[in-house]
């Protein structure tokens, strides 16, 4: 198993955080992991991304030009990374902010209104958790129970936020799993 994932959005949407949670869960599952943030000039422009690699083998490059998966929370991120995704890859799209679908037909698009769903779950700020849930649901990249443990673990300092984030993740997951058969058949 070897998976390269790019997570991208505006600064403040929490893409670095969900990338860390994904890497943390991968590590707990016994895999090799890397998490690499883009810390350069693009970050100064207000957009933000990170690359997570989860693998059974020691990881060489922690950055990628051809990810197996992509999570985009805003439109510039879809514009920037859509063409790079490997054929058959999963793209989770936050349709609250992304006004178009991928132009490619050889990828599995998982569109969902992350901010709206997060609002219903208790806080629009948890849109990142909705997207993470959808990605885990569609790809099964890490065990969902383990992912929940990691989520709880990471919010120990602010326990009030745990149920909201858990609910947001679950709502996303429920949408994501509907795409799991398509993702598995790729």
């Amino acid at each position: 198993m070897h998976n390269e994932i790019i997570l991208a959005g505006f600064g403040g949407q929490g893409v670095l955080l969900i990338g860390k949670l994904l890497a943390y869960a991968g590590m707990k599952e016994g895999h090799q992991v890397t998490w690499m943030p883009a810390y350069g000039p693009e970050m100064r422009g207000g957009t933000c991304n990170c690359t997570v690699v989860i693998s059974d083998k020691p990881i060489g490059a922690p950055i990628t030009n051809s990810p197996h998966g992509l999570i985009v929370l805003n439109l510039p991120s879809l514009d920037k990374f859509e063409a790079k995704v490997r054929p058959g890859g999963v793209i989770v799209i936050n349709t609250t902010l992304v006004t178009r679908m991928p132009q490619r037909s050889d990828v599995i698009a998982v569109p969902l209104a992350c901010n709206d769903i997060a609002q219903e779950a208790g806080a629009a700020k948890a849109a990142n958790m909705v997207a993470l849930g959808a990605f885990v649901g569609a790809t099964g990249i890490v065990d969902v129970k383990l992912m929940d443990e990691v989520l709880v673990d990471s919010l120990q300092a602010r326990p009030k936020l745990i149920p909201i984030n858990q609910a947001a993740f679950k709502r996303g997951y429920e949408v994501g799993v509907k795409y799991a058969p398509a993702a598995a058949a790729r």
Binding site: K20, A23, M27, Q32, V33, T34, W35, M36, P37, Y39, I59, P62, I63
Partner: peptide
């Protein structure tokens, strides 16, 4: 370099 410094690994 910046990559070794900024990257997270176990």
């Amino acid at each position: 370099d910046g990559l070794i410094g900024q990257m997270m690994e176990p």
